[in-house]
């Protein structure tokens, strides 16, 4: 059998193996989602694909409603998919890292809603547990040491 890859410099990615179900972290290493599905650019469907048709590319990571269809089958309605543009991806490893902050992504809106409407309003909700406000840097460091 001929090899299923070639010698070009670059990176080979198998969707299931390297992308689906991996954690997505934003630019501050805060989790924003898990890759539930991938959106590809449009290709001819239900018709013959002419031999010179360029292959599709990944346009976005999908999450949100896509998880339900991964579990139960079917197809998520277009409007319920939360998209993270592929262009925002900077690193693919054990986790997928983005170049942008979570607040610029539409997929974190439920987190923001719960924060602004409920958790942020309970006294103490904006402090790291066990730290006074003055020590509070606001960034994403561990409270362990």
């Amino acid at each position: 059998m001929t090899p299923g890859t070639d010698d070009r410099p670059g990176r080979w990615l198998d969707a299931q193996l390297h992308l689906l179900d991996r954690q997505v972290l934003d630019v501050d290493d805060v989790p924003v989602a898990v890759v539930d599905d991938l959106e590809l650019s449009e290709v001819p469907f239900d018709q013959e694909i002419s031999i010179d048709t360029p292959p599709p590319v990944i346009t976005a990571l999908l999450s949100g409603a896509a998880i339900a269809t991964r579990i139960f089958g079917g197809r998520p309605p277009e409007s319920r998919m939360q998209r993270t543009p592929w262009a925002a991806v900077v690193d693919i490893g054990v986790v997928i890292k983005l170049a942008v902050g979570r607040d610029t992504l539409d997929l974190a809106w439920t987190e923001r809603w719960v924060r602004d409407r409920i958790i942020g309003r309970i006294p103490g909700g904006r402090h790291i547990p066990g730290r006074k406000r003055s020590e509070h840097s606001g960034s994403d460091e561990r409270g362990g040491s």
Partner: peptide
């Protein structure tokens, strides 16, 4: 589900986890 979690964050930054 890929939410932020952990006690090392202020609850407001792991809002769904705390809720």
């Amino acid at each position: 589900l890929g939410w932020p979690w952990g006690k090392f964050r202020p609850p407001a930054q792991a809002a769904r986890f705390h809720l």
